[in-house]
Every structure is written in structure tokens, then in C-alpha cells.
Design a protein around this nucleic acid. Structure first.
Lengths: 212, 212
DNA sequence: TAGATTGTTAATCGATTAACAATC
DNA sequence: TAGATTGTTAATCGATTAACAATC
């Protein structure tokens, strides 16, 4: 059975489904139709049925979807119970915030180490992990084989560090460095986060409104 | 002259153009063709020319685009020199990080106040601003008319607070609360940031790779 | 069974890409 | 002028929506 590739827009909607279904479950809702879910999420019912059917139908005609079951299936597709090893580099303000507030374990990852080049904070703890010096990076990777890295470092350092990390076996980046990594290797997954772009988009639409 | 509405995908690419052009400018590059910019940004040359032409052609046939000029034009479109008044609510770890690292003034905004319900941190300063109690919110808004709010609060509090803020004249939200605000008013702009969704997307693609 | 709602195919819509005439 | 590259229209592609037969 050939596994078809699912398009990115669909994949990016999965975490959102997962979130909403979690809320519905907490509300005590047992079944839901695509129509009702659509209203709540601001999607179309058609799209919801399409999306779910990429992975095989898990509704029941005339009934709808079982909330808990559906949530679990989507969780399994996303792999929320897996534990991909993740390290985080750069434990400044942002890095610390990410380390302590992202619930990696609920999202298919496990944060296993923190690194920073600042000797003043090396040895201190955040999110239950001791911050290690950059010099330990190579050794750590050889020993523990983390698969992904969170980059919370200034943009000028990002590209070079990413390349080094790839040599050390890292194949995924969650990149907060305000710099779009240029990685040729198609096996390396890069998720660039640009909060600044998001703010500028909001600002643009605010300005537009003003002009009316 | 009727101003056509530009589609969201185009708008969301503008900050990215702006960033790349800034880098090119720092590199000392004076002119660039759509073809070369395309290679650097991972877009197609066609798309770049299309995008720019929504706003009126600012290239020169046979020459290309003037880097500095183009950057300035895009900056003007985004309104980076405007100063939309922004308040931030919830100065926990994330809120403090956002307040101190987002360079609001370079992005068309001005952060003018911080609020938090925790009395222990009220009165302390972050990013040059004193954290105020939630009780001052109403008064502050009536006095200073902020236009947008950054929500760095837990999800259970988000919806209610947003509605209150709308009544106080806020018409834009940069929402980090892990909750999709439901706002009926079409004049209110909402930019939901879901870092968790981003991490889960990365995790999904990492897991996919493993299975091969 | 009748009503409801899915699964799935077909139609539409919108965004991206290709092509090329205009022009610097 | 000739070469290069834009501005812009047309073609393509992909994603979303509509429709409806299947079926619980």
C-alpha cells in the first residue's frame, strides 16, 4: 500500500484539529459532525471531511465523528506520544521561555539538553536541565544522538551552527534566529519561526484599517 | 483610483522581502534582479514580479530592482515607520521576552504599557516600562487609546479579556494564548500565534522521516 | 425504514508559474 | 543598438468547496 504524501496545508491543520478536539473532549462532548466542528473552527465542513479522509475515514455515516477517538487518531498521526530527542541552543530570555513553557513531551518531543556560550549561566538550571557549554555539544551528540535542535541564538550565528549540528547528526531545526536557514539536504527539516513577520503582518492590517 | 485588496499570502511575504532586502543592503548590494532574489529567497522570479506589481511596478526593465529603494517601498507599504500604540498583557516569561526582544518600533508599532495581575511584579520594569495592575487597564485605555494588544496570558482568560479590550477600543490582537480568539467584529484584526502547532508540525515531519 | 452525515468524486476558485511583449 | 529584465497576460497547478451516492 503506497503511502501518499499529504500536502503541507493539511499537515499544518492537524495540530489545530488536535487542539480543538481536546477542548471539546474537556467540554464532555462525545460526538461531533463535520458541520458543527466546521462552525467552531472556522473551516468548511467539506474541508474537514477531506482532511480526515487523507488518512482514511474515521467517521461514521449518519453519526459523525467520535471526539475522543478522533483526537487520539490525530494525535497518533502527529506522533504526540513519540519522544524525538531535542536540544536547545541559546538560553537567553527566549530560549528559557521556550524550554520551560513548550510542553515538548506533549508534542512528540523530549527536550534533553540546553546549551549556551555564556559561562555565567552555564551550570544553572532551566526546565529541570543544566545549561551546558557549547564545547560539550559534540560529545553530547555522539553520546545521546539528539535528532532536532531549537535555535534561540542571534541570526549571525545561526547558519554556521546549523551546519555544524547537521554534521553532528541533527536533522531537524526549530529556528527562532530571525534568519532563514539555507539547508540543501532534503532530509533536514527546518521550521523557521518569524515572530517579527507575524507582528508586521498585524501592523500592516492595523494601518490599513486606519486609512479607511 | 480603487485600491484593490491584496491577498493574504502576498501580504505575509512582505516582511520576508523586507528582511532579505535588509540583508542585501548590508552586504552592499545596490541592484538585484527578480531572478537572483528568487534564488536567495527560495521563491520563483515570477512570483516576485507578481507580488511587487500588486503595489505598482518599482523595477526597471533591463536593470532589475534597486535594493535600497525597494526595501524602503516595502517598508512603507508595511508601515514600519508608523507607531501603532500597543499594550502587552501578561508579563510572565513569555510576555517579558516579547516585550524586550521584539523591536516593536522597527515594525510599525510602539509598546506603550505592560499589565499583569500578579501584585508581586507590579511596579517592576521590563523593556523600560513599569508593569501595571489590571485594574489600571480601563483608565489607561481611555487616556492613551492603544490600538492593539499582545496577549501573553493563559488560554482560559483570553477570550473574556479580548472582549473587554474590544470594548475599551482595542482593534488588534497579537495572541499568544494558545487559544483561537472568536471575534465576530470584522474590524478587529487577530493574529494568532501557535508555537505549539509549529513544534508539532516539525515533530510530524521528523517522525515521518524515521519511518522510512 | 427515514434521516443524518460521511466518504469521495467533480467543479470551482485562487494562487503560482510560464511566456512574452514592452522598454530601459 | 542589443541584451537584459521587467510588467502583465495567459496557462497551469493545487487547494478548497460543492454535490451526491453510500451507508450507518
Amino acid at each position: 500500500m503506497e503511502k501518499q504524501v499529504i500536502s503541507t496545508p493539511v499537515i499544518r491543520r492537524l495540530p489545530r484539529y488536535y487542539r480543538f478536539l481536546g477542548e471539546l473532549e474537556r467540554e464532555g462532548l462525545v460526538r461531533i459532525s463535520s458541520k458543527e466542528l466546521a462552525q467552531r473552527m472556522g473551516f468548511s465542513a467539506s474541508q474537514i471531511r477531506q482532511d480526515f479522509n487523507y488518512f482514511g475515514g474515521f467517521g461514521q455515516q449518519g453519526y459523525g465523528y467520535h471526539v475522543g477517538e478522533l483526537r487520539q487518531i490525530i494525535g497518533d498521526i502527529l506522533g504526540v506520544h513519540k519522544q524525538t530527542g531535542v536540544i536547545l541552543i541559546g538560553t537567553g530570555n527566549l530560549g528559557k521561555t521556550i524550554a520551560s513553557h513548550m510542553d515538548f513531551e506533549k508534542r512528540g518531543c523530549k527536550l534533553i539538553a540546553l546549551f549556551d556560550e555564556n559561562p555565567l549561566i552555564q551550570g544553572t538550571s532551566t526546565a529541570g536541565l543544566t545549561i551546558m557549554p557549547m564545547e560539550s555539544l559534540e560529545n553530547f551528540c555522539q553520546l545521546h544522538h539528539p535528532q532536532a535542535a531549537v535555535l534561540c541564538i542571534p541570526k549571525h550565528a545561526a547558519q554556521q551552527l546549523a551546519e555544524k549540528l547537521i554534521r553532528l547528526g541533527i536533522s531537524g531545526f526549530w529556528n527562532f534566529s530571525h534568519f532563514d536557514l539555507k539547508i540543501n539536504n532534503p532530509d533536514v527539516i527546518v521550521e523557521n519561526v518569524h515572530l517579527g513577520d507575524s507582528l508586521m503582518t498585524l501592523a500592516y492590517y492595523m494601518h490599513q484599517k486606519e486609512e479607511e
